[in-house]
């Protein structure tokens, strides 16, 4: 129902989004995954009619939204990456304000506010000033405000940044629940692959303005079907071992993370004896060697040579 067609957005020096194609169907939870600066927020702003693309088109129900986004605006709810709330107003005052901006009135607005407060678990804090809220509570209210007008599509830009695990779980559950109970369509942006992996049916992965992969979770993981991810553990590494690994043509990607090294290697190679040999040569005591389940993180590592979160 909502599509980005060959969207490019140029800022003065940077191309934030390059020839991006994307679609969202009714009832889906779509994930947009990418590290900071990948262009996720830019893509979302274009999708929600806040930003005009340099080229390309945004279509909602097959109609272009570039010139007249009115019909789109009525059904879209946006949760900005920033806490877009009045810190000096109470939760309820904020909701009233934004509800009125959405032309809701009187009893309808009142009921809607109570309903949303219930959903985001802030009913007993409704009278409190937002300034006094914890990060998680602000994030929840940030989401709540976007749901007042009963949007069909909820676009969420990194809604869990900088909050405690409980609030994060609460938010993830809420998104799942909204999708299940009310068939709310969700576009969920994040640089946490676990979130996207947990929530989303289909996933787009972005890096440096490019869409580098898209599809269902399984489809994306298929990218690594011909490869294995191997985890090595030891008390400490030495330069020689790492250089040896790096120079080995059978190892496609590697990431050193404390006393763990993650390697992406071709599946058909029997790498284990090779690794053991290299370790012995460099005098490294390996504690464990595991073949890992493929994660989106690995896919990202495979595609870009970098970790999602550097």
């Amino acid at each position: 129902m909502l599509e980005l067609i060959d969207i490019t957005k140029k800022y003065k020096q940077t191309k934030a989004v390059k020839n991006m194609n994307m679609y969202i169907e009714k009832g889906e939870i779509v994930g947009l995954l990418g590290p900071n600066g990948a262009g996720k927020s830019t893509a979302i702003s274009i999708l929600s009619s806040l930003l005009e693309p340099t080229s390309g088109d945004v279509k909602f129900e097959n109609k272009s939204m570039i010139k007249n986004p009115k019909s789109l605006r009525q059904i879209v709810g946006i949760v900005p990456q920033e806490i877009a709330l009045y810190e000096d107003l109470s939760a309820e005052e904020n909701m009233k304000f934004f509800g009125r901006i959405y032309r809701l009135k009187g009893k309808t607005l009142k009921n809607k506010i109570s309903e949303v407060l219930e959903q985001i678990g802030l009913t007993d804090r409704r009278k409190d000033i937002v300034k006094t809220f914890s990060g998680g509570m602000k994030r929840r209210l940030n989401i709540g405000v976007a749901m007042l007008h009963d949007p069909e599509i909820l676009i969420m830009d990194e809604p869990t940044v900088g909050i405690d695990p409980q609030s994060r779980n609460y938010i993830l559950q809420t998104v799942k629940r909204l999708n299940k109970d009310r068939q709310m369509t969700v576009l969920y942006t994040s640089h946490y692959m676990e979130e996207v992996e947990y929530l989303c049916d289909r996933i787009y992965i972005m890096d440096k303005g490019n869409l580098i992969a898209s599809g269902t979770k399984d489809e994306i993981k298929q990218i690594l079907a011909s490869e294995n991810t191997i985890s090595l553990k030891a008390d400490h590494w030495n330069e020689r071992f790492i250089t040896n690994l790096r120079e080995n043509p059978q190892i496609h990607q590697m990431k050193v993370d404390g006393n763990e090294i993650v390697l992406v290697v071709s599946k058909d190679v029997n790498i284990f004896s090779k690794l053991a040999h290299l370790a012995e040569e460099a005098n490294v005591q390996l504690r464990a060697v595991d073949v890992k389940q493929v994660t989106l993180e690995d896919v990202f590592l495979h595609l870009t040579g970098r970790a999602l979160r550097d």
């Binding site: 009619s49 806040l50 605006r73 946006i78 920033e82 959405y102």
Partner: peptide, 14 residues
């Protein structure tokens, strides 16, 4: 505008 409240209003077709 910084906190994107303005954007929120624009999205609401304000």
């Amino acid at each position: 505008r910084q906190s994107h409240i303005f954007n929120r209003m624009i999205i609401a077709d304000f």
